[in-house]
Simulated assay, not measured.
Amino acid sequence: MTIKKLITGAPGAGKTTYARELAGEKGKVIDLDDFRSIAPDEETAKSWRDQAEEAAKASDADYYVVRTLADPVERAEVAKRLGAESTVALLTSPEVAKKRVLERDGDDTKHQVIDEWWENFKANDGEETLALDGEPDDPSADEPADAGQGSEPGDPAPTSNEEEPADPKPSEPTIEELLDKARQEEREKVLTEQNTAYFTQRFKETALARKLSDEAAGKLLGTVNPTALMGESYEQTDANISEFFEVSGISAPKINRGSQHGGYRGTEPLAGKEFGASRAEQFYKNRK
Score class of each variant (00 low, 15 high):
1 M>W: 05
2 T>R: 12
5 K>R: 13
9 G>F: 01
15 K>E: 07
19 A>D: 02
19 A>Y: 00
22 L>P: 02
25 E>H: 05
28 K>H: 08
31 D>I: 06
33 D>F: 03
34 D>A: 08
37 S>P: 03
41 D>V: 05
41 D>A: 08
49 R>D: 05
50 D>G: 04
51 Q>A: 13
55 A>Q: 14
57 K>W: 01
58 A>D: 11
63 Y>W: 14
66 V>I: 15
71 D>S: 11
72 P>L: 04
74 E>K: 12
74 E>V: 01
75 R>A: 03
77 E>Y: 00
78 V>P: 02
85 E>L: 06
85 E>W: 01
85 E>P: 00
85 E>G: 15
86 S>K: 12
87 T>Q: 06
88 V>C: 03
92 T>G: 04
103 E>W: 07
114 I>H: 05
116 E>F: 05
118 W>N: 05
130 L>A: 02
134 G>A: 04
135 E>F: 07
136 P>I: 06
137 D>L: 12
147 A>L: 14
147 A>T: 12
148 G>R: 14
148 G>K: 10
149 Q>S: 11
155 D>C: 02
156 P>S: 08
162 E>M: 11
162 E>G: 10
163 E>W: 02
166 A>T: 08
169 K>W: 09
170 P>G: 04
172 E>H: 08
174 T>V: 09
180 D>Y: 01
182 A>Y: 04
185 E>I: 03
189 K>L: 14
191 L>N: 14
194 Q>W: 14
196 T>R: 15
200 T>E: 15
204 K>N: 10
204 K>D: 09
206 T>A: 15
210 R>S: 06
213 S>Q: 07
216 A>V: 03
217 A>S: 15
218 G>Q: 06
221 L>H: 08
222 G>H: 10
224 V>Y: 00
225 N>H: 11
231 G>D: 06
235 E>D: 15
239 A>N: 13
242 S>Y: 08
247 V>T: 13
247 V>C: 02
249 G>L: 10
252 A>E: 11
253 P>V: 00
254 K>Y: 00
256 N>D: 15
256 N>M: 10
268 E>M: 04
269 P>Q: 13
272 G>R: 09
274 E>D: 13
277 A>V: 03
284 Y>L: 06
287 R>T: 10
